[in-house]
Amino acid sequence: MEWPALPLKDGNLLGFGTGTAWYKHDPSDPPNPELVKVLKAALFKGFVHIDTADSYGTEREVGTAIKESGIPRDKLFITTKVLDGWRDVPAALRKSLERLQLHYVDLYLLHNPYVIPTTEDLQNAWKGLEAVKAAGLARSIGVSNFQRQHLEAVLEVGTEVPALNQLELHPYLQRADDFVPWMRENGVEVSSFKTLSPITVAAGGPLDPVLTSIASNHKTAVSTVLLSWAIGHNIVPITTTSSSARMDEYIAAIALKLSAKEEEEITQVGLQHHFRWWGKKFFGQDDRS
């Protein structure tokens, strides 16, 4: 199967994540054999984009799974992120690469602007990401959980434009004030986590019957429909599961082509309801930005 990609970063439009709660553990603990098993299963199913972060405590498992899979490095797309190490990004990435057993990552993200005290600190952290790209330790660099003001601060001083912003995005949180078009106008692509929220943490909303009907028409799963909706908008969804059957559902989203009417119905019904899972303390109750 030919997996679609975003040309600017050669990144596949579907990623397998490792940020789920049961994966997380103290980095000093031995590697989690169950996670290694799940990751190898995902790789053998055909996932080539694996998403991790230093704060997840799962980089060693990703590295072990890659090594044990035998899949050539150049066939994979590996994303990781820096959180607490923002003050010395090169040192943080070297530690991540050691845990991943890799010489470079395909995409390195500044994980969370809200842990960085000042705009100047944020800009200096971004310069650290530019340094690791220049050193060949990261093929592409980007950000995660950034709002417009954070991106504007980076664009003000950066010699590199963030390749991508990974943030919560789904039909119930499509981001207000033309944020997604604005990012793309400035050369920043979009990746989503919690893409399946309408059928998981936000189930029971107005999209339930819509998604069920569309899935029935295509003889597929509702998760496949939601991921296809994201991919149809050139968004890179990051999702995960320990179930082999669920992996098949997710991969099926690559081949599923929703009609323009179906995509628009999901979009418009989704706009009728608001739900945010990540970072609620940073936003007002009705803030859709």
Rank of each mutant, 00 (worst) to 15 (best):
L226Y: 12
A163E: 01
L196H: 11
P198L: 12
A255T: 12
D26K: 10
L122R: 11
R73E: 10
N165E: 05
W126M: 04
F275M: 08
H218C: 07
L164W: 03
H233F: 00
E265T: 12
E263Q: 15
F282I: 00
T267W: 13
D287M: 08
I238K: 10
R94V: 09
T200D: 12
A252M: 02
P30K: 11
R73H: 12
I71E: 10
T220N: 13
T58D: 10
S96F: 05
V201D: 14
G284K: 13
W3Y: 13
A252L: 02
V48S: 07
T241A: 11
L8I: 10
A92H: 02
D178L: 03
E168H: 10
S144E: 04
N32T: 07
Q101R: 14
T80I: 01
L196N: 11
D177S: 15
S55Y: 03
W278S: 14
L211K: 04
D287L: 02
H170P: 05
K24P: 01
R175M: 02
Y114T: 01
R246I: 02
P206G: 14
I266M: 12
V157Q: 06
S96R: 09
K281L: 07
V154S: 00
K194E: 04
T79Q: 07
D121Q: 10
D54V: 00
N165R: 08
E61P: 05
E34G: 13
W22T: 13
N186T: 09
N234I: 00
A153K: 05
H150K: 05
A41M: 10
N112A: 12
H150L: 05
A203W: 06
V161D: 03
T118M: 11
P31E: 10
N32D: 15
G136H: 08
G187E: 03
P7S: 10
P198E: 10
V188T: 06
N145V: 02
A91I: 04
G142T: 00
A245E: 14
Y108N: 03
D178A: 11
N165L: 01
D248S: 14
E189C: 06
V236D: 11
S289F: 11
N145L: 01
H111L: 04
E61D: 06
F193Y: 15
Q149M: 09
K81H: 08
G270N: 08
T119Y: 04
K9Y: 06
L258P: 03
L97S: 11
E68H: 00
V36C: 10
T240D: 14
L83W: 03
K219W: 02
L207K: 09
I199C: 13
I251C: 06
G19P: 03
P162W: 01
T267R: 15
L97H: 07
A163D: 05
P4C: 13
R139N: 05
T18C: 12
P7L: 01
E130C: 12
A41H: 05
Y114S: 08
L83I: 00
V225S: 07
I116K: 08
G128K: 03
L129K: 06
V36A: 11
P90Q: 11
G270H: 06
